[in-house]
Design a protein around this nucleic acid. Structure first.
Lengths: 318, 318
DNA sequence: GCGACCGTGAAGTCTAGCTACCTCTCCTTC
DNA sequence: GAAGGAGAGGTAGCTAGACTTCACGGTCGC
């Protein structure tokens, strides 16, 4: 087999296409920038075309580089399917499986998922790793996670990361959490009634915090975020004590402590979804998890009504 | 990127699936059997399953091994398409291109092809390599050839090699070549009239020789193949001198020397076709060759009538 | 049972990829 | 405009993975 594009090098190019900097790619792969640079030059030799060019003190992909980076997803999907073809022959769903889960979905999704899987596939050993989608997706693509329970805010409208396939689970509206005493004012005047109040949200950077800012800006003011709380469920205690108000994912407002009121905030929702690497959907262990996820979330309204138990309804690949 | 199936190792497995012996795969790749054995064990570790098992003094693929070998073609096609995406950006059709051609098609296909390409794409440097399909196809899959002009006998009904795509060019019937003096007897009694004659054919192993044997067996006798001739066109000189009869591809019987008669032999034909690696059909240089091939062979009747100039009509991938 | 063939294991060799260090360029800041 | 910082890339040296050589065990044919 004479000459051949190297898959690992294509992955480096793909990651460069997304992050734009060699240093970032190097960090992502746990190597030095020099190694990445060398591998990219080797890839250029294999491809017979220049793939990157300097721009300022950074890099830019050429048209050929961008085209090659885009093709990478198909190659990786084919490799995943190849691995799946081997796994598909295992008689039983078993083995280790790393599942990343957003903190807000741990209680409502991950916990019932573990229970369900323990019944359905006792020899499957799922390992739950708490991680926000921003951290979890690179882990998924780097094959250190196999499934990610994450979310995307509908307003942002961004597609799933390339090379991943998203299976929507259910819609999760944002909710306004406020001390019970403030409820009448808000029901009268809306969000603007909380203009001067102290707010609590997640520390930067956080998409939840961004959505809070967005909602308040829509209501005509910039919120004074005095407190930050990486465990947003705990933020409800601040709210209950009357010290702050917040906007939180509905998932966290299941059982608010007494003293805290929760009001739905229409128009600002997110979709909770399962993410897998494209090409792995067919693997028995992955399919089993997707099916169990569909089962344990079947009670909640799906993005367009309840989703079927099949689990594949509405999957989107990129 | 943690853990990943290695493409080169998958190719070894695919070749093992076809040849059945480690030694053959090793020869094909120009390495020692030990190296192949080691790489296969490494692949088993990557796949997490045993892929081969000993059977007698040879090897046999397990179900998992066969499944993985089958997936190899898709991965390679994806890689070819990736490379094609880079090539597609070249403004002009140019560069080196290795074209294998069966000896019998050199005059009728390769020569006009070169002329046509010289006019259409002066900066393309096609290199013609004479080779029977049996030798050319491994070279094609090993990326040492880019296009192969070959043939397959319709009777055998075997598909193209996995990982290659075949574009039919035209039908080439077999012809009976015999001294002019024998023509009346054959027209009276058919092939059986030549039962006792001396025959000339290609040296073993040769599919043309196999078809000769097949045709004679159908006529009720086993031919006495006295002479062998690797250049079958020259065999016509033996026929013209009255010393032998033969069954030859029609392509070689264009202009028989005086003294030799040529009769079509219905039912024993072959299809002349262009072979490329699956996934490379879209590359500009490859597409240009396929289009030029369609043009220079447009005069001949296609397998089901003349093929369109598009060149893609009836392509079959495996 | 002997020899030939085939696949595999162990030890040595060699290549290719990585690190560490340095240089160069470009952008920012004072 | 000089100085500093950030990022990419080149070079020498090291390490790990892949290949070769050699030797062994198993299987088939004579």
């Amino acid at each position: 087999m004479r000459h051949m594009l190297d898959v690992k090098r294509m992955v480096l190019l793909r990651d460069l296409a997304e992050h734009g900097r060699v240093t970032a790619v190097a960090d992502l792969h746990g190597v030095t920038p020099s190694a990445v640079s060398q591998q990219l030059r080797a890839l250029e030799a294999e491809a017979g075309a220049s793939l990157v060019e300097r721009e300022g003190r950074g890099l830019r992909l050429t048209a050929a580089g961008a085209a090659l980076a885009a093709e990478c997803a198909h190659v990786l999907a084919a490799l995943e399917r190849a691995e799946g073809a081997v796994r598909a022959l295992d008689a039983e769903v078993a083995g280790d499986l790393a599942v990343g889960c957003a903190p807000s979905a741990l209680r409502t999704v991950a916990a019932p998922l573990l229970a369900e899987l323990a019944v359905r596939h006792p020899r499957l050993r799922p390992r739950i790793v708490q991680a926000e989608p921003e951290e979890a997706v690179p882990e998924l693509r780097g094959r250190r996670l196999d499934v990610v329970v994450g979310y995307r805010y509908d307003l942002l409208g961004e597609p799933p990361a390339t090379g991943t396939t998203a299976v929507p689970l259910f819609a999760d509206p944002l909710c306004l959490a406020l001390p019970e005493a403030l409820r009448p004012a808000v029901e009268r005047e809306g969000l603007a009634a909380l203009r001067g109040h102290a707010w609590v949200s997640a520390p930067e950077p956080s998409s939840c915090r961004a959505m809070l800012l967005h909602a308040c800006r829509n209501a005509g003011f910039t919120p004074r975020i005095e407190h930050s709380c990486s465990d947003l469920r705990s933020a409800l205690w601040l709210v209950a004590s009357g010290q702050a108000v917040s906007i939180l994912p509905g998932l966290l407002c299941d059982s608010p402590p007494s003293g805290a009121a929760v009001l739905p905030l229409p128009g600002h929702g997110r979709t909770v979804e399962a993410l897998v690497r494209s090409g792995t959907e067919g693997r028995p262990a992955i399919a089993a998890v997707l099916s169990a996820l569909a089962a344990v979330t079947a009670g909640r309204a799906g993005p367009e009504g309840p989703t079927g138990a099949g689990g594949g309804g509405g999957a989107v690949s990129y």
